[in-house]
Write a protein that binds this DNA or RNA. Structure first.
Lengths: 335, 335
DNA sequence: CTGTTAGCGCATTCAC
DNA sequence: GTGAATGCGCTAACAG
């Protein structure tokens, strides 16, 4: 863009207009189809564009149009297998509406998260906030900026902001019901990040299962397979017969550890995941889990954001249902 | 950005300068630390910024500075488990240098790929091209634009462009050696996309294994687990005892199908993956495969691009080595 | 140290 | 239909 040594000078709309013998305005019209232009001029412009290799500067366009042509997505962890599908869907929707996608990662850090959102607001028409860890007040303050924003995987009661999420509560309830019907009476939940709303929803449903006679036990754990691996040790001294987890990674970590310890699943312990990251791509996975329609989620989120940008959007939070997949890691409790 | 109905008017640097009783230039200096400013003014500026909720417009900054503050990454498939780690690393490097990351997906389509690269060049200081499927000539033409660009996972002989890649050839050679030493004499390779350089490298090494007495057999397949699943049928009628694959997804799909068919692995067939996407996150994976250091790859790629932007970069293509992981899906051939 | 000025590259009024 | 002029919001000379 700038003329650094050794780099050829940037070609502007003026270069094209000169080469084509027309005004810059005409070049703009031709390129954007903004108005009718004599076909002979159209050709001359296209020729000049091609010959010069002209590419309109996106920053200049953005400035002049008052739109960046970009949406921003902030995720807590890019390496989390949950997000690629979401990003893919969002990207596709964005592109269908002529927008680019900026991606940032907060590394699960609420403080960083705040700064990144602010940064996104400086360069994007709208922001899609995935699973924000941010405290409610901070979120409210960000929303007060009146910058188009959609919340993904978190619903904040009292804040009116377009939100789309998954019915985690329902998902966890299905898991508990499944285990209870198998005969389990004591279960442990390996809890995810405490700041996570999604985690809180799971816990809420988990504790609700007490009503069905399930003795529940929440254990601080984390969000990765390592956390699951590490958390298993303490469990084996307890009376639980079923292990529920914050997500599939944790479950897989736990399974891995159980396997090492020679504990058989599901004979001695049932293990149930959450999210279903393992199935679709890794076909022979066999973890019992509940799934969320990730691409639909991403698609809908993208569409809501787009609608918000164009018409405004005002609807209640959307909850997509989860589906239970009973596979090989759950069974009747040991006697 | 623009004043749409119901949206509050955008706050500019002038609003801040007025509120603080200083010139816009001073505001700019304070915010960018470009020059020394009297501390009393600094405070007034900061107060005004906070009170007004001012956020500099990235497009305007970009235009004025002659830099977008953004790098672009183009990947063939966002949902491919290979890329999250790469994106994560690239994002982290970019941010460390104060740049944002734009992400685009070509959907494995060379035609789309071209347009997206052009688009990235309009809005990014530099472009990281992952596994481009594009024909060589087209790539050359794109490079002639003199826009900073780094090639990732593809090396094009004769084109001098910063490239970083993986020693796929070496990886495949290790796989073949492993199988040969186990006693295999007939192997099939489930080939990936034909336009893929990475695939060509694997094939080259695979065929090189003939020299060691391995009878090799390349079978068109594809890049996803479904492709692997579908490709298995035809194999069972052949004499091969080992199945090599384009990547782990294909291998897992194949395993899944073999499992359904009641064919045992590795007793009847050895199956070997490529890339090692399954291990690190899904701890109890047991696929024999070769791994690539994805985060190092992403990190180095990001750093090369950054260096290219700042100092210029001129070095030979970098090849990172792969490592063989012998796990449970490979063993001696059936008699 | 600080304010004034002049672009950055483009879209978009207006006149013609 | 087309061109000339203006401004998007900011930074970087340039004066003072």
């Amino acid at each position: 863009m700038q003329n650094r040594p050794g780099r050829s000078p940037r070609i502007t709309i003026n270069d094209v207009s000169t080469a084509a013998g027309v005004s810059p305005a005409t070049v703009s019209r031709v390129l954007n189809g903004t108005a009718k232009v004599d076909s002979s001029l159209v050709d001359r412009v296209h020729d000049a564009v091609r010959k010069l290799g002209y590419r309109p500067n996106a920053a200049a366009q953005g400035l002049a149009r008052g739109e960046w042509g970009t949406i921003g997505v902030l995720v807590p962890d890019l390496a989390n297998p949950y997000f690629p599908d979401v990003l893919k869907a969002v990207s596709s929707v964005a592109r269908a509406h002529g927008r680019r996608m900026m991606v940032m990662e907060s590394d699960e850090d609420p403080a960083v998260e705040h700064d990144l959102v602010e940064d996104l607001m400086r360069c994007c028409d709208g922001v899609l906030l995935c699973s924000p860890r941010m405290p409610r007040a901070e979120l409210a303050e960000l929303l007060s900026r009146e910058h188009p924003m959609v919340l993904f995987n978190r619903v904040v009661p009292g804040l009116t902001v377009p939100s789309i999420s998954v019915d985690f509560h329902g998902g966890m309830t299905q898991v508990c019901g499944h285990l209870a019907q198998l005969g389990h009476r004591r279960a442990a939940y390996l809890s995810g990040p405490s700041a996570s709303w999604a985690n809180a929803e799971r816990i809420r449903a988990f504790e609700g299962a007490r009503a069905f006679g399930l003795e529940v036990n929440v254990i601080e754990c984390g969000a990765g397979s390592q956390a699951g691996y590490d958390a298993v040790g303490a469990l084996l001294e307890s009376e639980v017969t079923a292990i529920l987890t914050y997500n599939d990674l944790v479950a897989l970590g736990a399974l891995s550890r159980l396997n090492e310890l020679g504990v058989s699943v599901p004979a001695q312990y049932s293990v149930v995941g959450f999210d279903d990251i393992s199935l679709d791509r890794v076909a022979h996975s066999n973890l019992t889990t509940v799934s969320v329609p990730r691409d639909e989620l991403g698609r809908r989120a993208g569409e809501i954001l787009e609608q918000l940008l164009v018409n405004g959007y005002d609807a209640d939070p959307l909850y997509l249902p989860m589906a239970l997949h009973v596979r090989d890691t759950s069974g009747p409790p040991r006697r």
